[in-house]
Design a protein around this nucleic acid. Structure first.
Lengths: 342, 342
DNA sequence: CTGAAAGCGCTTACAG
DNA sequence: CTGAAAGCGCTTACAG
């Protein structure tokens, strides 16, 4: 088999032009079916592989999308964004694009260094997965590159981003607890850490307001300091009947803590999480939680990106994707204390 | 700022040729320092970005590497390979390459469908991360693409692969237990599941043989069936003083199981894992385990790949990377029963 | 030190 | 339906 078979080779073999071969291979008009078939047969026989680079060169499009994730989100316990990346890779592939992951180091983020794949035009657009420093984002937005933020947003409504519907997700989850008879519901999470987390809090708060349930000060429990480091949880004197947690990981810690103190979950106290990640399955019982619809978000963001590559001037703004409650056994039904299930 | 600044634009602005601009930008000989400086200044001012595609076109190299991971290894609890991918992306970037992840679906693996990035020549070589079906591997090896296997190997010694030194890793870990006075050591893992796991078993077995310690039949406990599905662990009638586990995940399950049955770890029974992944930190106490040196493996594999792209005919065979024992508190020192630490 | 020519493998727009 | 010409943005090899 020859090393690098090109359209030229096929053309020569058939005594036609490369233009014709190109049309045949790409299923374009302007070739007879007969010739097309011949071309394809020869292509098959010679082991011809299309050279996407050459096409890219001509079009000025690489059909690659850069995906930027801060180093901060990649430690061993934070697997969520890598899970996300994986789905993105699949969805991009289905759309004939490839994803190139760029882990942004803390130094580069601070020094406002753009990735090499930007400087070398290796990608047509970027997806920024997870919050970055404002200065970095602002700088990035100044470039002419199509950009979509994924799983976070900024205060500028024109910037395109795809986010989970945190607000209604948590609202629905809290309503679920109320329907199960809970009135004493505490909230665990630092509401000042990210916009998503604040939105979740507001969803909880809306449900509480609507049901006329008071939220005492010590019922809003911080889980991390403003630098994002986890801190010890300060439980209220009187343990509530239910805890709503910002994410599964902190719910996992809470369940462990409660069990250590001798409380049974959900018999003595119900706990719900958010994300439906690995931590939701590690507690005993498993956590009732809200599943982030990663696949749907990936599809949205890819469809936005593809459109933006073609027309960089359109703005789509904030796109929201619904979550879904996953019912496990961490919630007690106070109306029917015997049954723990849904 | 002009949309697409090219070397042509810079050349025109300076009244020189593109050849000169090219040399200046790429720090090649044949331009005066003075001119070079001018070129770089203009490049900066105009927001010129190098077009890697054009270079690739000329050289016939994309500077992309495909990384193939089976869908099988990407579920929510298996974060190891994504962790690996992340490090690969960094190391590739340092070497001026980019990584393109391809999640291989079970169907494509079964139907022997090669990835799109292969057919479109979007990558110069492939890293196959994690065991695939033999038929698929054989087919892949038949193509002219440079290929390196990562974290597994086959029985063919010529095929390049980078693997963790499972044998000596487990050998050292078992020796450590023996030095701490353990004589009653069981093994948890299905030795028929992968070559790595078999090697780990053999490392354990070598240590036992060397120390003249017998291994009763019920001391080799399977953790999964031959399809890779986890099964319930069949503990021996008499609980040994220590368990050696194939991986942290199964060690985590074992610790949970033992604790449920009322055994304390490590007071009543010591447990060690392998991988130093997320599960090693989720037990109480944390697991003593062997750390797979992901960074070192990534560096090895990238260096191999880069060499193979330049010279596809060289074969490097099996390259082994040493692991490292991470000491936590899951092992009791039988010689000094008071102290649990190292 | 500087640059004209040729070419990487394809596609587009146009002519026949 | 078929194809000659031009070009995408660079680099290499060679001439001056």
């Amino acid at each position: 088999m020859k090393q690098n078979v090109t359209m030229r080779d096929i053309a020569d073999k058939l005594g036609v032009s490369v233009v014709t071969v190109s049309k045949a291979i790409n299923d374009k008009d302007g070739v007879s079916d007969e010739l097309r078939k011949k071309v394809k047969t020869i292509a098959e026989e010679t082991g011809y592989r299309f050279n996407a680079l050459a096409k890219s060169m001509k079009e000025g499009l690489s059909y690659n999308i850069g995906i930027i994730v801060s180093e901060r989100f990649t430690d061993i316990t934070q697997t969520f964004y890598m899970q996300f990346y994986q789905v993105l890779a699949k969805v991009l592939d289905e759309n004939h694009y490839s994803g190139i992951l760029h882990i942004l180091s803390l130094e580069d983020e601070d020094q406002l260094v753009l990735p090499r794949i930007y400087h070398e035009r290796k990608v047509d657009a970027f997806i920024i997965l997870g919050q970055l420093d404002h200065r970095y984002l602002d700088m990035f937005l100044e470039t002419d590159t199509p950009l979509v933020f994924l799983d976070f947003y900024t205060d500028c409504p024109d910037v395109d981003c795809v986010i989970m519907d945190n607000f209604y997700g948590m609202y629905d989850l809290t309503n679920y607890l109320v329907k199960r008879g809970h009135q004493d519901i505490a909230y665990v999470g630092n509401i000042h850490s990210t916009s998503s987390i604040l939105d979740r809090y507001l969803g909880y708060y809306k449900s509480m307001l609507e049901h006329g349930i008071p939220v005492p000060n010590d019922y809003v429990i911080s889980d991390r300091d403003d630098q994002g480091q986890f801190i010890d949880l300060q439980l209220p004197e009187q343990i509530p009947t239910a805890f709503v947690c910002i994410c599964d990981q902190i719910a996992y810690h809470l369940v462990t803590l409660l069990q250590k103190k001798g409380y049974r979950v959900p018999e003595d106290c119900s706990v719900v999480g958010f994300d439906n990640g690995i931590f939701a399955t590690l507690t005993e019982p498993g956590l009732t939680t809200v599943e982030v619809n990663i696949t749907e978000m990936a599809k949205s963001v890819v469809s936005l990106i593809v459109k933006k590559v073609k027309n960089p001037n359109i703005s789509y703004g904030r796109v929201t994707v619904k979550g879904k409650i996953i019912y496990r056994n961490s919630v007690k039904d106070l109306h029917n204390p015997e049954t723990i299930t849904v």
